[in-house]
Every structure is written in structure tokens, then in C-alpha cells.
């Protein structure tokens, strides 16, 4: 464990909690892409099946349980409890255009052709593009609630911090996982446009509104 991975995990946890609180406090999931939340739940489910087969540490297990629990709680909020506030008309990204290539690639490029390893690879590739429906929805509505931008900031920051974690681990432990690194780079690059808007607008107290 190093400072980048720890702060990355905490940033990820913060994002997940911020989203849950936003929906719970405002009793509304307006502006939230249910499709991205479905993809994140699929990412966690396919990646954390090893909860059933191996124990790494109390931290590892508890964080995985929290991530999975919050992901499904968010889905429950979006598609059941606060379903009336879900803006389906703007959440129209075709997720099959993500699932098919990612599914195919995870069979072609992986470290080991075993079920758990292919599922892990699938979750890594899927996570790198899972935010696209959410970013697409914001581009369609032309704006995002400030609390939603904080959610996106911490979510994007977490994988950026993981990139530093991988540099650290390569330098000090000689460990590197090319699949995770390339996917993590793609994931972080997808946030660059949002990071620019977040830093130049939201942090200056303005609302995030895209040139519609």
C-alpha cells in the first residue's frame, strides 16, 4: 500500500458516498446517468468475485463490500426509490457499443485465459469507459448540478492517483500490470475535458454549463 493508492481509494469512496448523499438529500437523481451506474455495478460485481475465493486483507475485503453495497444502493435509488426523478430521456447512450467491444477485448487481451481473470480484465476495460454515458448525458443536458461535478471530480481523481500508484509500485516493487495501466490511462484521459471545466468553472463558483 502506498499514499497514492490509499488516497485513490479514499477518493473513490468519497465519490460513491457523495453520489448517494446527493440522491438521498435532494431525493432526486436528476442529472445522474443510470446507465453509468449500471456499468459501475457490473464492474464491481465482475471484479470482486474473488471475495468468495481469496482473502487479501480486512481493508481489501471491507472496501470491496462497501463499493458493491453502495453501487447497488445507488441503482435501487435511481431505478426504484427515486425512479420518478430519473431523467431517462437524456440518458440515451448506447451501452451495447461499450459492452460488446470491451467483452470481446477481454477475451483477446488478458493475462490468463481463466474465468476469474477474464472477468477481472472485462471489469478493468469496462471501468475505463463506464463514465461515458454520464459525460454524454451532461453534454446533452448542457449542464450538471455542482454536487454532481464534485462526484465526477473525485471519481476521475481516483484513477489518476492510481496511475501514480503504478509508477510508485513499478519503481519500488517492480510490479506493473499493463492492462490496468493502459485502461487507467484511457479512463483518466476521458475526464480531462471535465477536469478542465471543473477547475476553470466550478472551483471559481460558477455552474458547470457546457456550450450547448
Amino acid at each position: 500500500m502506498n499514499v497514492f493508492r490509499l488516497t485513490g481509494d479514499l477518493s473513490h469512496l468519497a465519490a460513491i458516498i457523495i453520489l448517494l448523499l446527493k440522491i438521498w438529500k435532494t431525493r432526486s437523481c436528476a442529472g445522474i446517468s443510470g446507465k453509468s451506474q449500471i456499468l459501475f455495478a457490473v464492474v464491481f460485481t465482475s471484479r470482486y468475485l474473488d471475495l468468495l475465493t481469496s482473502f487479501i486483507s480486512l481493508y481489501n475485503t471491507s472496501m470491496k463490500v462497501i463499493y458493491i453495497g453502495c453501487a447497488y444502493a445507488t441503482l435501487y435509488f435511481v431505478y426504484m426509490k427515486f425512479k420518478a426523478t430519473y431523467d431517462g430521456n437524456h440518458d440515451t447512450f448506447r451501452v451495447e457499443f461499450l459492452l460488446v467491444p470491451v467483452g470481446g477485448l477481454s477475451f483477446l487481451v488478458n493475462h490468463d485465459f481463466s474465468p476469474l481473470e477474464i472477468l477481472w480484465t472485462f471489469s478493468i476495460y469496462l471501468e475505463s469507459v463506464a463514465i461515458l454515458p454520464q459525460l454524454f448525458m451532461i453534454s446533452k443536458t448542457g449542464e450538471a448540478e455542482t454536487i454532481t461535478t464534485h462526484y465526477l471530480f473525485f471519481l476521475g481523481l481516483y484513477r489518476a492517483l492510481y496511475l501514480f500508484n503504478w509508477i510508485w509500485r513499478f519503481y519500488f516493487e517492480g510490479f506493473f500490470d499493463m492492462i490496468a495501466i493502459v485502461a487507467g490511462l484511457v479512463q483518466t484521459i476521458l475526464y480531462c475535458d471535465f477536469f478542465y471545466l471543473y477547475i476553470t468553472k466550478v472551483l471559481k463558483g460558477k455552474k458547470l454549463s457546457l456550450p450547448a
Binding site: 481509494d9 473513490h12 474473488d50 481469496s54 487479501i56 481489501n60 472496501m63 470491496k64 493475462h111
Partner: peptide, 10 residues
């Protein structure tokens, strides 16, 4: 190639 290290990252 076999990825010997366990998946210790989240």
C-alpha cells in the same frame, strides 16, 4: 503470460 501477483488492488 501468467500474472503471478495476487489482485491486491481494488
Amino acid at each position: 503470460e501468467e500474472n503471478d501477483l495476487p489482485k491486491d488492488e481494488l
